[in-house]
Every structure is written in structure tokens, then in C-alpha cells.
Design a protein around this nucleic acid. Structure first.
Lengths: 160, 160
DNA sequence: CACCACCGTTCCGTTTACGGAACGAGCCGA
DNA sequence: TCGGCTCGTTCCGTAAACGGAACGGTGGTG
């Protein structure tokens, strides 16, 4: 799925999607709904994602995570992740049995359990059990682009 | 908690809150975050609330539910509900053990399990176990204003 | 190597969500 | 009954999110 096609399918502008992925936009609820509806995921999947970014501006919430996929049984979710240079982003523990798989495309990422973070460069891969608090941080000045796969032990309801 | 004080505490305009409750605004993610952060509830509480409104415009999602409270253990959540005249709004089953308590302020509400809905007028009170699909509908032409209390059997994690 | 299709970004005019102020209504207390 | 307080709504100028078009970069193809 490319930015262009997603924009066309969801009926939103390419500029909107582009700015949204880069965190330079503060999306409208209607915009978010159009995108997530097209992707077939609930709104909550984008908002309360695994890498909660406790930023001052609410705009940054969920901004680093977009373009979400999930299978019909909701046993995994694939996020596209961007981590900007700066302090590490923290994420609380998820439910028991959840595993995170991260593949780095560009930049150097230091992530994993806060007690024992791991480091990965372009093309490299990380994995950890995410039932403990964990963090994400970019090493150096370069922004990190990576994919993040969450695997749930069993089909978990994404209901309210 | 009044609209005026909530606006002051959350740092948003009264016009914004007013229009948001009436569904005439399409809020920004930043606005929603400011409000929910002040109320101490996660963003998802407003978006995937119990009375999911499957409206065409994404703006209406969660618009009928606002002004949320919850205690520190997250064992209950209090919503302020407005139901407009028209077809009934449906809500899927919640997790086992959840109870819904509704107090009607104005208008006549017909709500409860889809198999056996109940009716209540101003000052009256409804209650049902919400582990089955249930619905909300306004009786007559008047908009219904009510409060909705969800009680969880045990402190449930509101995590992602 | 030229061409083309598509990618994601940037520019720009329009639309609209934003906060502040003004307003009428309702509710006490003097 | 009057004045003051707070309620929620409405008006309005500003700031910004929106979609469309134009742009440079990249990979595949004849």
C-alpha cells in the first residue's frame, strides 16, 4: 500500500497523508476516521498504539505510527514507525504474551525493554516480549524508519 | 463539571466544547487529547465509547458521548449522553460483567438489550447487564439528554 | 539511453476548526 | 425585585488543516 493509493482510496489528499506521517499535521477526527475505515482497523489502533508518544502537543500522539494493517483475526498488527532524534519514547507493558518485531529500514534504533534495550541498524531486526515497559530511541541525528509488528498470542478483541 | 470549567482546565475554547457536544464540530486530534488528558481518561474512551454511532461523517463518532469521568482504578466511567431523534444506535456486547446505568435528564429514552429494551423519562433510571448487544433510541421528537455510567466488575486495564 | 509510471514531498488557494468576546437564560442571595 | 454569578450558545477574526496541482527522484521497460 502506497501513500498515493491510500490517499485515493480513503478520499483524502496526498498532502494530508504525507504531513500526517511526518507529524507536521494535526489531523481531524474525520480525516483519521476516513483513513482507518479504509484500512479496516478501528480508530483506537492508531491512537493508542504500542509506542505511545507522551508529547506535549497532542498532535504527536499516534503521529509516528500510521499505515496499519491487521489480519482478519486481529492476531497481528503491522505499523510503520518513525522515531525522531531526541529523548527515548516510552511505552507501558502490553498484555501478556505480546511479542514485538522491529525491522529497521534507515537510521539506528535502540529499543526494547527499558532494562535491556537492543540496537539495530538498517536491515537489522529486533524482537522482544512486550509485557514489560519498553522504549524506543534514535541513535545519532538521523531519523529512524522501521516497521513494527505486534503479534498477539490469540485473537484478541479490539472492542471497547 | 461544567462546560465552562472544563474548557478553562483543558485550555480549549468554550465554543469548541459546545460545538463538539452538539456534533457541529469536527475536532482535531490535539483538541480531543487536551480534553481527555484533563479528564484523565485515554483517548479511546471517547472514540470507541459504548454507544458507537455508525455515522457516515467520521465527525459524529463519539460526538454523542463526552465529559467523561473515571476513578483511579478505572472501575467505572461516567459519560454524558445525548441521543438525537431517529433510528436507534446500536452497541455491541461489552465484556462480561459490565453493567450500564442510565439516568435520563430530558426527553424519553428507550434503551437496553435489543431483545428487551426499557423506557425511561426525565428523572428515571435504567440499568442492564451490557454483555449483550444493546441499543439507544430517542422516543418522540425531543433530543434525549442522559448520563451513562459503566461499571466494570474489576479494575480492568484500559491499555492498548 | 530515453521514456514512462509511480513514488513521496512541497506549494497554494480554499475551507474550517480554533479561542475570545458578547449574548440571553436560569439560579440563588441580598 | 434586583444584581451578580454561572450556565451553554453564538458571533467573528485568526490560524491551520484540507484537497489539488506541480515538482524532483526513482525504478522498470522498450
Amino acid at each position: 500500500m502506497s501513500l498515493s493509493t491510500l490517499a485515493r482510496l480513503a478520499g483524502v489528499g496526498k498532502a494530508t497523508l504525507s504531513g500526517l506521517e511526518n507529524g507536521t499535521r494535526n489531523p481531524t477526527l474525520e480525516t483519521l476516521y476516513a483513513i482507518t475505515a479504509q484500512l479496516g482497523v478501528p480508530l483506537t489502533a492508531v491512537l493508542s498504539g504500542p509506542a505511545e508518544t507522551p508529547t506535549v502537543r497532542g498532535a504527536a500522539v499516534g503521529a509516528t505510527l500510521l499505515e496499519v494493517f491487521s489480519d482478519t483475526d486481529a492476531t497481528y498488527e503491522l505499523y510503520r514507525m518513525r522515531v525522531s532524534p531526541g529523548p527515548a519514547q516510552l511505552s507501558p507493558a502490553h498484555q501478556a504474551g505480546v511479542t514485538e518485531h522491529v525491522t529497521v529500514f534507515s537510521g539506528v534504533l535502540r529499543a526494547g525493554p527499558v532494562t535491556a534495550p537492543l540496537t539495530a541498524g538498517p536491515g537489522e531486526y529486533l524482537r522482544w516480549i512486550s509485557d514489560v515497559p519498553h522504549s524506543y530511541a534514535a541513535v545519532g541525528d538521523e531519523e529512524v524508519r522501521a516497521s513494527l509488528l505486534l503479534r498477539y498470542p490469540r485473537s484478541t478483541t479490539v472492542e471497547s
